[in-house]
């Protein structure tokens, strides 16, 4: 069984080297100590109540040995840990910046060309990237196991991650700083694209191509968006109560709001709630949902509405 995730950044081999180094040291030490333990217990087991034992209280040679060797090993491990960490924390000159904002329980990525994505980070392969990150509320932590990078985000201050992806593919993003109820649903994906694909993603053509070729029914597309765009963090689809109201049976139901008014949940209500979530707050819930204006296209919203309709 593999004990390390795929290695997909320039930093990953360094981390893996340190992990392997310490693992080898640990396994050898463990076997040594475990062996001696068992060997002594068997060899020197009590034979009679009057066993004679020597009064050995110290041994300068041994004691020096087991002080010096761990010290040397510790120094070696520290140095390797430091060297790779130093590379990781030093920003390459040609790094491209991407702004990251975390909010309970969503990742938002802002690119220099004005594009904005939710929970999906798009980067070109081989290009040094610098994430400039901030939280809108509590602490979060940006973690991509395949890149071996992790950094906490907080309010009122920027923190940074540098990485260069070395492998095309889709990799997980986790939030690793506990941030409340839906912490474990604050997930995302990094899409590492080839230079050409990234360029076409940047000018928007990729999306159109992808859409045109997709002949999924709208409700299916909606289901995809539900998990990709982070709706899953707060809205359940099985009736369970979450941070936000469940989607199950939502469509066509009478909604009662915090200010006492009510409305029948139709397409327009749902669209409004996605684009301007602060307008109507369902009773019993907080005004915490971010606006998806500019993050979803009309066709996406229609797909989501279709998906909600399908959840009876």
């Amino acid at each position: 069984m593999n004990w390390l995730p795929v290695s997909a950044s320039t930093f990953a081999p360094g981390v893996d080297f340190v992990l392997w180094l310490v693992t080898i040291i640990s396994v050898i030490s463990c076997i040594l100590i475990g062996f001696l333990l068992v060997y002594f217990v068997i060899k020197y087991r009590r034979k009679s109540d009057n066993d004679q034992t020597p009064a050995i209280t110290h041994d300068s040679f041994l004691e020096t040995l087991w002080t010096v060797i761990p010290t040397i090993l510790c120094i070696v491990i520290f140095i390797y840990g430091y060297v790779f960490y130093d590379q990781y924390t030093t920003t390459p000159k040609n790094a491209v910046e991407i702004n990251v904002t975390a909010k309970q329980w969503l990742w938002t990525f802002d690119y220099s060309n004005g594009k904005k994505t939710l929970n999906e980070l798009y980067v070109p392969i081989g290009q040094p990237i610098r994430l400039v990150m901030q939280s809108d509320d509590v602490l979060h932590s940006f973690f991509v196991p395949a890149f071996r990078v992790k950094q906490d985000l907080m309010g009122n201050r920027y923190t940074y991650i540098n990485f260069t992806a070395t492998k095309e593919g889709v990799f997980d993003i986790y939030c690793t700083e506990y941030c409340g109820t839906a912490h474990s649903n604050m997930l995302g994906k990094v899409h590492v694209l080839s230079k050409e694909k990234f360029a076409s993603w940047e000018d928007g053509s990729a999306k159109k191509v992808q859409k045109a070729s997709s002949n999924l029914p709208p409700a299916e597309v909606g289901r995809q968006l539900y998990s990709d765009k982070g709706c899953v963090a707060c809205h359940s689809i099985d009736g369970a109560d979450g941070v936000g109201p469940t989607w199950k049976g939502l469509f066509g139901k009478n909604r009662i709001f915090a200010d006492g008014t009510s409305i029948l949940a139709d397409e327009n209500y749902i669209k409004e709630s996605i684009l301007y979530p602060g307008e109507k707050i369902v009773e019993g819930y907080g005004p915490v949902m971010p606006s998806y204006k500019g993050l979803l296209e009309d066709s996406d919203i229609t797909a989501i509405i279709e998906y909600i309709k399908s959840l009876k």
Partner: peptide, 27 residues
Amino acid sequence: FIFLFTIGGLTGLFLGALAADVHLHDT
């Protein structure tokens, strides 16, 4: 205790190493 604490201590070496801890922290 001796054996398990040894494992506990050795795995601490992973976490003390800066580069490795970036990956392992909060996992």
